[in-house]
Design a protein around this nucleic acid. Structure first.
Lengths: 346, 346
DNA sequence: CTGAAAGCGCTAACAT
DNA sequence: ATGTTAGCGCTTTCAG
């Protein structure tokens, strides 16, 4: 009663061999019609479910993939997860979430899970590998790994991403086009490629507009709310504070706006703020945040597709897929006061 | 080279039996010292990892638990997940996330995963079971399931939760103590127990203060941003709109505040708003949201502990654990204008 | 088209 | 303290 039925039970009950049952249940097309239906029916009647451990052991596959992120607590990853999940399910795979908290030990643990058959492949979104460059090739041998959002130099892993530099430049150009001259940038953690690229984009846009980047205009944060607050405060202790801030992600932008309000400054009339990510809440935020929107669901979807192609041996080493971003102009950006005044004077 | 070493490889290389290797690697304490070290060393040298499918097949356990939620996209669950994960890891379990999107088919799928050995137990946070009441006992037989956050009448499953009615009453009493009389409540989806309890709490507090609940003061939403906006608008189309709103969750509260702003009403000077959940962003929101804080990490932790006790056969049927909530009073609530005026007149 | 038989890698009696 | 043996439930040759 409480015992789960096995393929043998069904075979016994129907007077056929276990092999036939297995074939029937896996739609191999090798079972003739009278038997086929009987087996299917019996399986349903007994509420039969194949034991995954047994199947995985035999087939040497787990039909699961691992999606590893820095911090499950960050809502940013959720929509990506949905994209991954939808595509994975479509192909018969389930998705496990891995959470590293930036801890190399845990990163290694998840790679171990690939080795021990927990999952067949991995979508890595942590922006780094837990080994030295020289070890990359050896450590990654035989593993199916796709990198998303970030990229990992020298790994030769296929990846899907956005062009962070171009997106950042566009965001800064928007501020410039509004008439801002003193534009600061709150960066992400700096040795990381993604943060560097966004800063590059900021610098490029500033340079092409002939604008100066004063000392202290590029404080470095960690993508968290608190650091947005702290760095914004820092910015307004400068002798010549900015009239606009391009923040490397929405969460720090929330923090920055919060701090500006504490300082008695209005957004956008005193200071304009642009974020990056377009989190779900950025639209309901006050003021609604102008920000760079990434096609998150699609990133997940494409990453999973790439992984599936890797399973099939169809992906190239270092294959790249780049998706387009959109600047969502909302209520946190406006013309600077001086410019507004000047315009009126004309 | 690319083949993963098995226990047999180690045994062969060292001239011992596979059983001994197994025992040595599982710290059974049954292997003598000269051999023990040699085996451990060899395992490390070969970068050996036990094959989980084989182990699970043999032990009839997967050492994994399933945490099933309505919507992974909701940041609310993330901190709970962290609590679950921390406790699970401590006990050697890994955590799989399941996402039902309120789809009974998918709910059933996750129960199937328990049956087929994908996981040993489940923490259910969807607030319902995908079967008719009569089937509960039969369907749940032999499965280890713990319910968190919500409760499922008639299932007899152990659960951990908060007292939604008391928490809601406290929130409304806060508004009453500020002097509000016309207090509305934006409800969650109503046949669901959690929403009903919160509404009960609202009604109790109103009644004990002798306050009236006019028609239209209890619009029903779905916990999503948009419905907060729409229902708030509806509320202010009434002939006698409220001066305060108790909203059944933070996300709808964000929407409501957004809408109030659109209507030209200031929060809190024109209208006070209280939420429920205390999401990460509620503090940085403008105005900082007064809301009911749930001990999310602890909920996760306790749910996992309860599940572990269920594995050990130590949990009682229908065992309940109730955790305390806290009302976080922030900037979205204030005395109503009329009252303020009256006070000044005195 | 179906059955018989082997074996995936591991652990747990049972022996010694 | 270690080895021998069997088998978890499934899939997949290989025969027929």
């Amino acid at each position: 009663m409480s015992e789960r039925p096995t393929i043998k039970d069904i075979a016994g009950k129907l007077g056929v061999s276990p092999a036939t049952v297995s074939r029937a249940l896996s739609d191999s097309g090798l079972v003739a019609e009278p038997t086929l239906s009987r087996i299917r029916e019996a399986a349903r009647a007994l509420n039969y479910r194949p034991n995954v451990s047994a199947r995985n052991l035999r087939t040497q596959r787990s039909m699961a993939v691992l999606m590893v992120v820095r911090d499950v607590g960050n809502p940013f990853y959720l929509e990506i997860l949905k994209g991954v999940e939808a595509t994975a399910r479509g192909a018969g795979y389930s998705v496990l979430m891995g959470n590293t908290e930036n801890d190399p030990e845990r990163e290694i643990e998840y790679f171990d899970m690939l080795r021990d058959g927990h999952a067949d492949g991995m979508i890595l979104m942590t922006g780094k590998l837990p080994w030295k460059h020289e070890e990359y090739a050896e450590r990654l041998a035989g593993l199916s790994v796709v990198v998303a959002l970030e990229m990992i130099g020298g790994s030769g892993l296929p990846h899907v991403q956005i062009d962070n530099a171009v997106a950042a430049s566009d965001a800064v150009r928007h501020l410039i086009s509004l008439g801002h001259k003193r534009i600061a940038h709150i960066c992400g953690p700096i040795p990381e490629i993604m943060s560097v690229r966004r800063r590059d984009g900021y610098r490029i846009a500033m340079k092409e507009a002939g604008l100066d980047i004063p000392a202290g205009y590029e404080p470095v944060g960690d993508y968290l709310l608190r650091s947005g607050e702290a760095l914004c405060q820092q910015l307004f202790e400068l002798t010549s504070p900015p009239t606009a801030i391009f923040v490397a992600n929405d969460e720090m932008a929330y923090g920055a706006i919060h701090e500006l309000r504490r300082l008695g400054l209005d957004v956008p009339s005193d200071v304009s703020v642009v974020g990056f990510d377009d989190l779900y809440l950025s639209e309901a935020f006050y003021p609604p945040l102008t920000t760079v929107s990434q096609p998150r669901a699609e990133i997940g979807q494409q990453a999973m597709k790439l992984l599936l192609r890797t399973f099939a041996g169809e992906s190239q080493a270092g294959e790249t897929m780049e998706l387009a971003t959109t600047l969502r102009i909302r209520g946190s950006t406006a013309r600077p006061k001086e410019t507004g005044a000047r315009v009126r004077t004309l």
